[in-house]
């Protein structure tokens, strides 16, 4: 029997090969056939989840509630010291210095990352801005969000903080951060589905010990991580509650 592993489509392109290497490692360690399927977008990944095709997922926190409460998934691990944070940025020449000074009707550039967009919208809310009084344009990558800010056809960009920090210095010099979130408790998680749930403890132990040898460390590095740490069920439930509280 072969299992299906998938990664939240908001993964950093630089880490694509890392996920394939990780999947090979996971297959060897667990002695199981696991196919890695990288979906291009959230709708196609969610369709696969709804169709019960997915057995392992490195999931966006936005999807965690659906995975746990509707599909019987449980958390395995999260990347050590990594949390999802958002940045609201403008063109450096934009005179606005505070979100409170932004006006209704502005063009906001976002990606499809659901948790980042949600965090960004929460920060814009402080300026009386909401989905009903702004124009949202969705782009494939954060580099494109930055480009549209530079071209001037977007007034505000919502970025994953890590992606913003990875932009070239030349681009960053032409942008300015209005707000950077400091939420700390929203993170992606590697989760396990019903068909593999009996092997949860075994797979969790393999992952937690992954950074204990050089080979495992190298693979983690290729994903941009230092180590995996266990996610307790209650920690996941807390994050789901938090996401629900923030969703409106």
């Amino acid at each position: 029997m072969s299992y299906l592993f998938t990664v939240s489509p908001d993964f950093t392109p630089d880490h694509l090969s890392g996920w394939y290497i990780f999947n090979t490692w996971l297959q060897r360690q667990s002695e199981s056939a696991i196919h890695l399927e990288m979906y291009n977008d959230f709708p196609s990944q969610r369709k696969a989840i709804k169709g019960d095709e997915v057995d392992l997922i490195y999931a966006n926190p936005f999807d965690a509630a659906m995975l746990v409460r509707e599909k019987g998934f449980l958390p395995l691990v999260k990347a050590m010291g990594v949390s999802d944070e958002a940045i609201i940025a403008v063109n450096a020449e934009n005179p606005v210095a505070d979100v409170a000074h932004l006006s209704p009707g502005i063009n906001v550039a976002v990606t499809e990352d659901p948790d980042v967009t949600m965090m960004g919208m929460i920060m814009l809310e402080a300026g009386d801005l909401h989905a009903g009084n702004i124009q949202t344009n969705v782009y494939d990558t954060y580099v494109l969000v930055a480009k549209h800010l530079l071209k001037g056809d977007a007034d505000v960009g919502i970025f994953l903080a890590e992606a913003y920090d990875d932009l070239s210095n030349m681009i960053k010099k032409q942008l300015r951060i209005l707000v950077r979130s400091q939420i700390s408790v929203i993170h992606h998680s590697l989760m396990i589905g019903p068909k593999l749930i009996d092997r949860r403890d075994e797979i969790q132990a393999l992952l937690v010990a992954m950074n204990e040898d050089d080979k495992g460390k190298d693979i983690l590095n290729s994903l941009g991580f230092k180590a995996w740490v266990k996610v307790e069920d209650e920690e996941m439930e807390f994050m789901i509650d938090l996401m629900e509280a923030l969703a409106t």
């Binding site: 409170a100 402080a126 300026g127 439930e237 509650d241």
Partner: peptide, 19 residues
């Protein structure tokens, strides 16, 4: 916070309000 169908606690999340 609902666990196994029962309310066990409450979580409060506060954010910056609009002026």
């Amino acid at each position: 916070n609902i666990r196994n169908g029962e309310v066990v606690s409450y979580t409060s999340v506060r954010r910056k309000p609009s002026r």
